[in-house]
Simulated scan of single mutants.
Amino acid sequence: MNSFDLAEHPHRRYNALTGEWILVSPHRSKRPWQGQQEEVQKEVRPQYDPKCYLCPGNERANGEHNPAYQETFVFENDFGALQSEVPEGSSDKEGLLKVHSERGICKVICFSPRHDLALPEMEVNDIRRVIDVWQREFQELGSLDYINYVQIFENKGSVMGSSNPHPHGQIWAQSSVPVEPAKETIQQFAYYQQHGKSLLENYLNLELQEKQRIVLVTEAFVALVPFWAVWPFETIIISKRHIQNILQLTEVEKDDFAQMIKGLTAIYDKLFNVSFPYSAGLHQSPTDGQEHPEWHFHMHFYPPLLRSASVKKFMVGYEMLGNPQRDITPEWAAERLRSLS
């Protein structure tokens, strides 16, 4: 039998951030780029859509009108999944049927007044203004006594559940720490207690040494395909400096972060020559009043496209019943993305 090869043989990879495992099966996809390469008709959107409830001056579903905003615009979601006024309540039947009320606030951020511009098409200065808004909202929402986590994210494209093509993101701030950040808190805390350093700081140093999964590098950030990536072209942006949250970014680092976001999302658009769909979001320290020195600021990108603009990865079968699985290796995916930079 030949010696074990990550690029050839089935294996499991450990996600140090969540403590979970993924099955990698590279032999199933020797040449993954030889899938469908059909042309997708590009959607041409106007700069302003009179029927869009996110465009400046237009009426939203609740009857309110948007201001004639010129940069970014933030408002409380008219159909938010969380509500700020929820009565306290809980029940527990034999430890099996547990319920607890949840308070929170959901907001929408229109990145630009223009209906036709997504992040990769926006100017770096305009993306920087979005980051300023993220920073302000994180501070304001996180300072509320009942908010213990602020999740900033974007769903881009209808395939990722976006109900409106106008470039926008969301913020869900709530009284509990959601499942994914909670798992990352546990893993990062355990590592910090044992090593006295950030898990992602040491992980990033390893990645910079190996260089196999690096996609983009700027002065303050690194974008890479995680060793444990689940989605075909999943990436993570990690700050080089060990900081806990977006409030600790310097003015120079915010400029750099804007450049990184534009660069990475532009690479995605080049991959299959389409406005690339994804779910992306910041992961940062909880706002529960604790210091959280273990936390390291980062941003996840989870895109679903696999071989072309219309061939998507779905979580089905074994992945729903066992654990996540992928065919193309993270190393191959990183090389493909890197070649487009």
Results as ranks from 00 to 15, higher is better:
residue 3 S to D: 12
residue 3 S to A: 14
residue 5 D to Y: 10
residue 7 A to F: 10
residue 7 A to G: 08
residue 14 Y to V: 09
residue 15 N to L: 11
residue 20 E to I: 09
residue 23 L to D: 00
residue 24 V to E: 02
residue 25 S to I: 00
residue 25 S to C: 08
residue 27 H to W: 00
residue 30 K to L: 09
residue 33 W to F: 03
residue 34 Q to C: 13
residue 35 G to C: 07
residue 38 E to L: 12
residue 40 V to T: 14
residue 41 Q to E: 11
residue 42 K to T: 12
residue 45 R to V: 01
residue 46 P to S: 11
residue 47 Q to L: 10
residue 49 D to Y: 03
residue 53 Y to R: 06
residue 57 G to R: 01
residue 57 G to C: 05
residue 58 N to I: 03
residue 58 N to F: 05
residue 59 E to N: 02
residue 59 E to A: 04
residue 60 R to S: 10
residue 64 E to L: 07
residue 64 E to P: 04
residue 66 N to R: 01
residue 71 E to V: 03
residue 77 N to H: 04
residue 82 L to V: 03
residue 84 S to R: 12
residue 84 S to L: 03
residue 94 E to W: 00
residue 95 G to S: 05
residue 95 G to R: 07
residue 101 S to T: 15
residue 103 R to W: 11
residue 109 I to D: 01
residue 110 C to Y: 11
residue 111 F to R: 03
residue 112 S to N: 15
residue 113 P to V: 01
residue 118 A to T: 15
residue 119 L to P: 13
residue 121 E to D: 15
residue 122 M to K: 07
residue 124 V to I: 15
residue 124 V to Q: 14
residue 127 I to V: 15
residue 132 D to K: 15
residue 134 W to I: 06
residue 135 Q to P: 12
residue 142 G to M: 13
residue 142 G to F: 14
residue 145 D to W: 14
residue 148 N to D: 12
residue 148 N to E: 06
residue 150 V to L: 12
residue 150 V to H: 08
residue 151 Q to Y: 15
residue 155 N to R: 06
residue 159 V to D: 05
residue 161 G to Y: 07
residue 168 H to I: 10
residue 168 H to W: 05
residue 168 H to C: 10
residue 168 H to Q: 07
residue 169 G to M: 05
residue 171 I to Q: 05
residue 173 A to Y: 01
residue 177 V to P: 00
residue 182 A to Q: 14
residue 182 A to M: 15
residue 186 I to A: 14
residue 187 Q to I: 08
residue 190 A to E: 15
residue 190 A to H: 14
residue 191 Y to D: 04
residue 194 Q to A: 14
residue 196 G to V: 04
residue 198 S to N: 05
residue 198 S to C: 14
residue 199 L to S: 10
residue 205 N to L: 13
residue 205 N to R: 15
residue 206 L to P: 03
residue 214 I to A: 10
residue 215 V to R: 01
residue 217 V to M: 14
residue 220 A to K: 12
residue 221 F to W: 09
residue 221 F to Y: 10
residue 225 V to F: 14
residue 227 F to G: 03
residue 236 I to W: 11
residue 238 I to N: 06
residue 240 K to V: 12
residue 240 K to N: 11
residue 242 H to K: 13
residue 245 N to T: 09
residue 249 L to M: 13
residue 249 L to P: 11
residue 251 E to Y: 11
residue 254 K to I: 07
residue 257 F to L: 14
residue 259 Q to N: 10
residue 260 M to F: 01
residue 264 L to W: 07
residue 264 L to F: 00
residue 265 T to V: 09
residue 265 T to A: 04
residue 266 A to N: 02
residue 267 I to Y: 05
residue 268 Y to M: 02
residue 271 L to Q: 03
residue 273 N to T: 01
residue 275 S to R: 04
residue 275 S to E: 11
residue 277 P to H: 01
residue 277 P to N: 02
residue 278 Y to E: 10
residue 278 Y to N: 07
residue 279 S to V: 07
residue 279 S to W: 05
residue 280 A to W: 00
residue 280 A to G: 08
residue 282 L to E: 02
residue 283 H to E: 02
residue 285 S to F: 04
residue 288 D to E: 00
residue 291 E to R: 13
residue 293 P to L: 07
residue 293 P to Q: 08
residue 297 F to S: 01
residue 298 H to K: 12
residue 299 M to P: 03
residue 303 P to G: 00
residue 314 F to K: 03
residue 315 M to P: 07
residue 323 N to V: 03
residue 324 P to W: 06
residue 324 P to G: 02
residue 325 Q to A: 08
residue 326 R to E: 03
residue 326 R to S: 00
residue 330 P to M: 04
residue 331 E to W: 05
residue 333 A to M: 01
residue 334 A to F: 03
residue 339 S to D: 09
